[in-house]
Amino acid sequence: MTRFADLKNDRFLRACLRQATDYTPLWLMRQAGRYLPEYRATRERAGSFMGLATNVDYATEVTLQPLDRYALDAAILFSDILTVPDAMGLGLSFAQGEGPRFASPVRDEAAVAALAVPDLDKLRYVFDAVTSIRKALDGRVPLIGFSGSPWTLACYMVEGAGSDDYRLVKSMLYARPDLMHRILQVNADAVAAYLNAQIDAGAQAVMVFDSWGGVLADGVFQQFSLAYTARVLAQLKRTGVDGQVVPRIVFTKGGGLWLHEMGALDCEVLGLDWTVNLGTARALVGEGPRGKALQGNLDPNVLFAPPTAIEAEVAKVLASFGAPHTDPSRPGPTHIFNLGHGISQHTPPEHVTALVEAVHTQSRALRRA
């Protein structure tokens, strides 16, 4: 078993487990990415996005870049949500400026019947990167592993690429729900195996990105997204290689409508987009012995405003969550500061500095108030 350094900053993990912290911990979705000039330089050396994601040294380097620049409280594995369907043989590629594309989309009965949980050896590069990053972090902050949700993966697998209207995947869902359920069953079991392998490699928390759950109709979301996220969660390991609890985070973009139902998921943390009021979410799912820690939820476009405006918006997010939990003797409602979606590639890096400083400074002051 790989021996990793002891954790020096465990605030993120403590907040995930609803334990009091001396300030509100912060990390950002897509924090290792194109807004950083050092990331763009490394990607240039790698030659392509997949060249970057499949090379352990490059993936380690870019995961650590935002931590060298900002006082963030967690690292997140640098990878892509589409590695799992790629390992299923769908042929993932990234054209310059076009986003992901699959050579063999899943659109008929034969293609659905051929789907299977992939050989995890095909994803060895991901697990090797997790171990490499964990070693390179040397206990600085915890490492988050992740996957796309079964439904989000299905969207890309059927559409063959990103989509504006989800016409192909929704057509299958309504016309042949049997085929869609079969895709989602395979995806859920594949995602669970994939996340468990990340945990075995050293991930200290895992996150399920249900990026496209919010495009579904009420009733359909529960049946085709939420149920399969629950199937993933039920299979996940509860402790990591060092014997510590591995918190599970679920983020559904556009999922505010179903917050009450998501409160019943077997996970520790719910991620929220910027359309949800944190105080309302706290009252609904964040209080009591079975409450969830909440993560979010600044609008990423706030980061285009000047630093004084960023500081004001941070204050609003912290105020909307309400009084921080400060009693170390018992669990209580906790907040992990994040954006309501991934950081934009056009974000000025110095504005992130203003964000991090504002969150840490203001949330410390709230605990002294």
Rank of each mutant, 00 (worst) to 15 (best):
R11L: 07
T152E: 08
P289Y: 10
V191E: 08
E44F: 05
Q31G: 10
G340N: 06
A264Q: 14
C155K: 01
A217P: 00
F127E: 00
D119Q: 03
G162N: 09
R248S: 08
Y35D: 02
G279C: 15
Y166C: 01
A75K: 06
V106Y: 07
A111I: 10
P142Y: 09
A161W: 00
F337N: 12
A319V: 06
L28M: 14
D108C: 12
D210Y: 05
E261W: 03
A103H: 10
L64Q: 02
V246P: 05
H341P: 09
P333I: 05
D242P: 04
D128G: 00
G145I: 12
P348N: 06
A365S: 06
G47T: 04
E357D: 05
G256I: 04
G243T: 11
L120W: 00
Y174A: 11
P328N: 07
L284H: 06
D189I: 01
T2L: 14
Y58A: 14
G340K: 02
S211V: 02
K8H: 14
R124V: 09
N196V: 05
I199R: 12
R367S: 08
D164H: 13
E159D: 08
M172Y: 09
E357W: 00
L366G: 01
N301W: 12
F221H: 15
S171L: 12
S149P: 03
R101T: 13
Y156S: 03
A227H: 09
V314I: 11
L17F: 05
V62D: 05
D68T: 06
V126I: 09
D210R: 09
G139P: 04
R368W: 00
D327Y: 07
E268V: 07
G214C: 02
V359P: 00
T152R: 08
A53Q: 02
L90M: 09
V314T: 10
Y174L: 12
S79H: 01
F49A: 07
A15C: 12
A190T: 00
G332A: 00
R30D: 08
D200F: 08
L28K: 11
A315N: 10
G162I: 13
V206P: 02
F251N: 02
A227I: 07
D108S: 11
M50K: 01
T83A: 13
A319Y: 04
L195K: 03
A53W: 01
N277P: 01
K316E: 15
I81T: 06
V169D: 10
E261G: 02
V130D: 05
L339N: 00
T353D: 15
P289I: 11
L137V: 02
F337L: 12
W258H: 15
R14I: 11
I81R: 04
E44S: 15
G202D: 07
T2C: 10
K135H: 15
W258G: 10
L115C: 05
L36E: 08
P118S: 10
A201E: 13
V250C: 04
L339E: 02
R34D: 03
R69C: 04
P177V: 12
K8Y: 02
G243I: 08
H341D: 11
T252A: 14
A319N: 12
H341W: 09
R238I: 08
L90V: 04
L195C: 05
D57Q: 12
M29F: 15
R134E: 07
D86N: 11
F251R: 01
G256D: 10
D242H: 03
I310M: 13
C267L: 08
P333Q: 08
L294I: 11
D164K: 15
L123F: 06
Q19D: 13
G279I: 15
